[in-house]
């Protein structure tokens, strides 16, 4: 959103519906963004937005993973609220993870495989896979035409943990974010992981994804600053602990034990 200079509000990071979509630790994405902005001396505000209130205005929205029932409720509440759709038109940044990725798309299934409307902010459609669930470490290389660092360099490989039963196909209006090296990802057989379009990114990666991939966090921060007409580039941060974690996870993902696998999980009786 373009805000008049001089009357500047803090950079606002909004975690959407932690009460419904806070199951998988993805609220950490909001914390990573807020801290990395703060450490650079930016005025930043981290807002937890519960599902019983209107969605506040923000520069970056993080939507996390959750269970099937709460996901359906979150999607219908967000559609009725309308703020996210308007925010994207105004240039806001959105990161959706797992259930949050699926509900950004056109359609996603509930536990009984009934389709539900998503927000339609990403041209992706999710259906139920088989009775198998993708559970495990995932490594994926970012696609060459995917968003790049402000200096033009490609993002490093993505690492994370996936845990989902959905198969997501990407339509012509969106592009794959990354290509799977180990793991399952979108699961449609094309080897893709996640999707993006404009400033909206969806991924299956938990970890949380921005803690495991701080370059992606900085990319989102950069987008938000550009959108606000603020200064770039971002000040460099010494990410010793983040890099040590990345190195360990990338090395471990190559081993059989931790590589992602499809696991049989019995469906709940209804």
């Amino acid at each position: 959103m373009s805000m008049a200079k001089g009357a500047r509000s803090p950079l606002t990071v909004v975690v959407i519906y932690p009460d419904l979509l806070g199951t998988y630790g993805d609220g950490g994405n909001g914390l990573v963004l807020a801290r990395r902005a703060k450490w650079r001396g930016l005025d930043v505000s981290l807002v937890q937005a519960p599902s019983d209130r209107p969605v506040p205005r923000g520069d970056i929205y993080c939507i996390g993973g959750g269970e099937d029932g709460p996901q359906v409720r979150a999607a219908s509440t967000l559609i009725a609220d309308g703020t996210l759709t308007r925010a994207v038109e105004d240039g806001a940044v959105i990161l959706g993870v797992c259930a949050g990725f699926q509900l950004l798309g056109r359609e996603f299934p509930d536990a009984a495989d009934r389709p539900h409307d998503g927000l339609g902010l990403l041209d992706v459609t999710t259906r139920k896979g088989t009775d198998l669930r993708a559970v495990g470490e995932l490594v994926a290389t970012v696609e060459p035409d995917a968003p790049r660092d402000p200096d033009g360099s490609a993002l490093p490989a993505l690492t994370g943990f996936e845990n989902h039963g959905g198969v997501t196909t990407i339509g012509p209006g969106a592009s794959p974010l990354a290509r799977v090296i180990t793991g399952v990802g979108n699961g449609g057989g094309d080897g893709t992981e996640g999707a993006w379009s404009g400033r909206v990114i969806g991924t299956y990666l938990h970890g949380p994804v921005l803690a495991r991939n701080v370059a992606l966090a900085d990319l989102l921060l950069g987008w938000a600053l550009v959108s606000r007409g603020e200064r770039l580039p971002l000040v460099w941060l010494e990410d010793g602990e983040e890099n040590a974690l990345r190195a360990e996870r990338l090395a471990m993902a190559g081993t059989v034990k931790l590589s992602a696998r499809l696991r049989h999980v019995p469906r709940p009786r209804r």
Binding site: Y24, G27, L31, F161, H206, G207, P208
Partner: peptide, 8 residues
């Protein structure tokens, strides 16, 4: 295997 819960 997933340590994401540390963030909760």
């Amino acid at each position: 295997f997933d340590t994401s819960w540390l963030w909760d």
